[in-house]
Amino acid sequence: MSGLVTGDAVVLGLQPARLPSRALALAIDLVVVWAAYLMVSIGLAVATASLDEAAVMAVSIASFLLVLVGAPIAVETLSHGRSLGKLACGLRVVRDDGGPIRFRHALVRGAMGVVEVLFSFGVIACIASLVSARGRRIGDVFAGTLVVRERVPAARGPMVPPPPPPWLVGRFSGLDLSGVPDTLWLAIRQYLTRMRQLDPAVSWSMAQRLAGDLAARTGTPAPDGVPPAAYLAAVVNERQARDARRAFAAATSGTASSSAPAAAFGPAPVAEAVMPVGRPVTGPDSTTAHHAPAPHPPQAEHPADLADVRPPASPSGFAPPA
């Protein structure tokens, strides 16, 4: 991380570009600019063949200034610090406070680049970048700019607020949170996820201000002796717990309502035909009566087998209590 700090003493997560990536971006820009300059020079040489030597010299100087100096300044101004080489390498020129550059920044960088890049073939710029702690060349120092990396690895996980202290969990279960707007919740979450990156004094003042706004909306101030940041974390944890309980209750009620029709219209029990015992069975063509044998109830091989019978398991995988 860089040492960039805004006016609110917020440490910015900007990574200064290293010398190899900057050198590659500069090489790409120089190839493009010199190719354009050679093409313009050839065209001007053909167009000014009939002019005298002084006119040809004036045209050559003008083309040098316009193509090699003016073109990079115009490109950085219009693209807000992204030339062709920087765009290919994922770099960008920004101000010291992290904001986009303007024309005056690009003008100072371009003017100093004539000396430290064009005339010295980049030697001065390389030495200055190696000496500087943030890899800035002389033009960046005078212009108040910095070359940073735009394409950085993504965070491994989402930014989540830190958990509250254990002794505050559940302490605000009776707090009325219906009057807290979503904008205030968003501001509190952003503060909690980035409070370790803030200056301690600024972090304390922001926590006090947010805690005061939250207390005004809920009607309950923070308890005595509870830091404002811990109070904010405990209230956010309480809101998340309530949201989780509501989501669980909605899911449970939806599951119960969807399973009720299945139970009502399930397969009907099949009636077994029971034949009376000991009564004669006669057919239309039979003259003798036959007695159906009396069915015998099934016998368990071991009495203990009946004791092991349990109710069927529920769909959730848990057996109901015996």
Rank of each mutant, 00 (worst) to 15 (best):
A111Y: 05
S203T: 05
A55E: 14
T255D: 07
V46F: 13
L44E: 15
A54C: 03
L19E: 13
A247K: 00
T252Y: 12
V11A: 09
A294M: 04
V236Y: 08
I42W: 15
E150V: 15
S258R: 12
A241Y: 06
N237E: 14
I188V: 15
V46N: 14
A111Q: 10
S316C: 03
R242V: 00
G7P: 02
L14Y: 13
C126Q: 12
R242C: 00
L214T: 05
V33I: 12
P221N: 01
P267C: 00
L65W: 12
A201R: 11
E53W: 09
V277G: 02
I61C: 05
H290N: 01
G225N: 11
S132T: 09
L24R: 14
V202H: 04
P200Q: 14
V152F: 06
F119R: 02
C126V: 15
D285V: 01
S120R: 04
D52M: 07
R239S: 01
M159A: 12
E76M: 00
A313S: 08
A233P: 03
D8N: 06
S259T: 05
R149H: 14
P321I: 03
P181E: 08
T252K: 11
A154C: 00
S63K: 12
N237T: 03
L66G: 13
L87I: 06
V148T: 15
L175E: 03
S21V: 02
A273C: 06
G122P: 06
P261H: 06
I28G: 11
V93R: 14
W34N: 04
G43E: 14
I138G: 00
P315V: 02
A289E: 11
V115T: 04
R246N: 06
G81K: 13
A262F: 04
A45K: 09
T287K: 04
R18V: 02
F248G: 01
P315M: 05
A294F: 02
Y231F: 15
G317H: 13
A247C: 00
V117K: 08
F64T: 09
D199V: 01
L91T: 15
Y231R: 06
D176S: 07
S316M: 02
V33Q: 08
R95T: 10
G283Y: 09
S203H: 09
L84M: 14
L306M: 08
V56F: 12
R151E: 15
A74K: 00
A36L: 13
R134V: 02
D243M: 06
G13S: 10
P298M: 07
A234F: 03
R217T: 02
T220Y: 06
A304N: 00
P280A: 08
L19N: 12
V226E: 09
D176L: 03
P72S: 14
G139L: 10
P261K: 03
V11S: 08
V123E: 03
W204N: 13
A23C: 12
R104Q: 10
D285S: 07
T183C: 01
P284D: 12
M159W: 08
T220Q: 14
G135N: 13
V67F: 11
G212S: 05
A111T: 12
L177D: 06
A47T: 05
S205W: 01
L91M: 13
P320G: 11
P320D: 11
R156A: 12
R189Q: 11
I73V: 12
A9C: 01
M39C: 03
S257V: 05
V59R: 15
T288A: 06
